[in-house]
Amino acid sequence: MAGINGSMAHLSDSLFTTAIAVYAVAMVGYTAEYAFGRKGRIAATVPVSARELVGAGGPPSTLDAPPAADPPRSAADRIGRWSFAITVFGALIHASSIVVRATAVDAVPWSNMYEFASVAGLVGVIAFIALLWRLPAIRHLGGVILLPVILLMFLAGTVFYSKAQPLVPALQSYWLAIHVTLVSIAEGALMTSAVLTGLFLVKQRYDRISVEPGFKPGSLAALASRLPDGNVLDKAAYRIVAFAFPLYTVAIICGAIWAEAAWGRYWGWDPKETWAFIVWVIYACYLHARATAGMKGRWAAWVNLAGFGAIIFNFVIVNMVISGLHSYAGLN
């Protein structure tokens, strides 16, 4: 059994810290773009086109394309572009931190909470980058998406951190690689969906109350006024779930296959398994809610957030408070 390559592990840790710092710089950039930018105001003032009103179930056509008359690039726009480039750079460093750690432990590097959080954070960033490609109008909101990623990575590097270690026998299975990779990709994507859903709720509330007489805009209203149309946010959040839900399903199946080989049963209602089930059922609820008349919109949005809450619970509380067979979090 190969041991641990110490200097590689160390390099990985440094890259990880650097990635956090780079993301933080990007976040400041996005915030600056948000504060000084005009694009958000444009997005807010572009009237919802008639076409979009007719096609309530149709695609977000207007905002996918850049605003028709692109104004000359402002300073804010340049900052935004730079922030985006910095985000991509951060993601590369982040990815290399994971690859280096994999080399150090000679296995897929997500057998404990730290490694898992790192991978999930990277997926969140990648999902954001992919989203910007389809939905450039929300770039100035990058800070809102990067904030949870930075928070997660900060916790990963401090509270959840564990040294690079070889895998205990139960974890020596390629199903682990598949299972945990899929879970972290799915959960990273669902994190992005949850952020969009949160923004959707803010926007929706703003749309509702801003037309009331005597409305006084607060700080949330400042944010909301620059958000793209609620439909766009809601639909983007849905599309991410439509992508992540099958992935999560496959991940649970792979987990069951692995449990069958390692523990002698494919399902045992271990706390981790129970919460995976709860998360899965909540997102199934979300999909149903979106297909049920009268439950679309706000109701479904709250179900989406509940699903993400369950993911957080499964990751933090189940790992750190409730013990079970899955207690290889690496914290003790």
């Binding site: 706390p271 129970t274 059922v281 609820c285 149903h288 297909a291 049920t292 439950m295 409730i322």
Partner: peptide, 24 residues
Amino acid sequence: SMRTALILLFLLAVAAVPGSILPQ
């Protein structure tokens, strides 16, 4: 109805919670 399915699904999720918190 779809609405009932939704409620039952939600109940299923809620019902599973004590199974992970109390010893089984």
